[in-house]
Design a protein around this nucleic acid. Structure first.
Lengths: 234, 234
DNA sequence: ACGGTAACGGCACTCCGTGCCATTAGCAAG
DNA sequence: CTTGCTAATGGCACGGAGTGCCGTTACCGT
């Protein structure tokens, strides 16, 4: 018999560009299907089929069905961490957190149309909203860790770090949501950043920092504890 | 043949107390199994079997496997909403949000041992951490909605609402985590509430409070030691 | 004693996510 | 051009979550 003709198609994912192309097609297919047919009524088979790949391949590009519609938070998280890591010790904390926060806007302003589609779908599906909340919380934790080190030595340092981090992340999200609700105007994210900057006026004042020998010891202990904590995460 | 003897056990879930009893047993079984065997390596069948009910019945008590280890956030959310709904219009906003926030502590302080077990399990499993983040975000949204109404008319009302809500929720979680890290001392949640109240000084528009920096260093040393101890526990 | 109600257990099903493996395109060396 | 290696692919099967359906049965009011 002439057999099933196993579809000798070009293997697009072989090269680096090929992988990027397949990934884009999967994202586009997922966004379109989630939007048209609804998230729950779209299976992974549907997405893979629409992109012209097998179901198994889908899971080689995304860890889960939800990941197909989520932006690359891992990459953005790494960039924010880099901002904190390379920051000059003398930079005012408020300026630093604003700079770190603005880094994340690019994740959305790079492709306004896609961001808009993601926004629409995400805010209609409870499961995706919750996933987004969890992702946002990862930023909050990252900010909190770094601020806790910066505020070390200040009275209420931990509380101040927690509050400041949460405030910055919340302001970021507010600016982002308003930008999306306005139709994601392609101004390079300027409207986003300007709105975001308003949070600076609402942040708690700069804590007192002193040249205290105990300060360095405490900071190193905290850093060690952080490393331990982080190394335990899978 | 003597057949399978369909286990003519008493139907505990028939009465209201029966339902509560079954639910408690399921929660206890889930907490124990998650703790001993790990979350991923525990199936719903295991939990149901340990509680002496069928798998199908488990899903009549909990929407998902994760729900078995989560506190009743829906109920707490409703109570917080009630606080906002019945608040006097003249009550200062800060006092109101503190009152609303404190309501949630009871969810944990009512059963310190169970809360401790939940905390341990939740912070070891990424899926449960993310779920917790999503639940917490529901509180943040509830606070934001009510504060937005209160701040309506103010020029930066929405931003203030977003920042204040995020700050209050973050402070609540910090107080809760510290209480849990301290072994959940059964003082009726007083330590929680006192720590939580410190956020009032950091809220937008409130004055900044200063304290003795040496005291802060000592506090941080203790906290760091706690984290070290905790991180090598399991 | 009896009939209605509601909880129960079991079965079958869909779908997500993963391990395994044979196939094959693409590429480099001979 | 041929050969051999590497890596992406897709198909298959499996475990587990969550759901719809249904016959059974304990409980309870009359």
């Amino acid at each position: 018999m002439t057999d099933a003709m196993p579809a000798t198609r070009t293997r697009r994912g072989s090269s680096a560009q090929g992988r990027a192309e397949v990934r884009r097609e999967l994202v586009a297919a997922a966004a379109r299907l989630f939007d048209e047919r609804g998230y729950e009524d779209t299976t992974v088979d549907d997405i893979a089929g629409a992109a012209g790949v097998g179901r198994r391949t889908f899971f080689r590009y995304f860890r889960s069905k939800e990941d197909a519609i989520s932006p690359d938070h891992e990459g953005a998280l790494a960039r924010v961490a880099e901002v904190f890591a390379t920051a000059h010790a003398g930079e005012p904390t408020t300026a630093l957190v604003m700079r770190a926060g603005e880094t994340v806007f690019e994740l959305y302003t790079a492709d306004p149309a896609l961001s808009l589609r993601r926004y629409r779908v995400t805010h209609q599906v409870a499961a995706l909203r919750d996933r987004e909340s969890a992702s946002v919380d990862h930023y909050r934790r990252l900010f909190t860790r770094n601020l806790r080190q910066r505020f070390a030595g200040s009275p209420d340092g931990d509380m101040r770090a927690a509050v400041t981090a949460a405030a910055v992340v919340a302001a970021h999200n507010l600016a982002l949501r308003e930008w999306l609700a306005a139709g994601a105007p392609d101004d390079g994210g300027r409207s986003c950043r300007e709105r975001f900057r308003e949070v600076a006026a609402l942040l708690p004042g700069e804590p007192v920092r002193r040249a205290d020998p105990l300060h360095a010891v405490a900071q190193r202990l905290e850093a060690a504890a952080d490393r331990l904590e982080r190394s335990r995460l899978p």
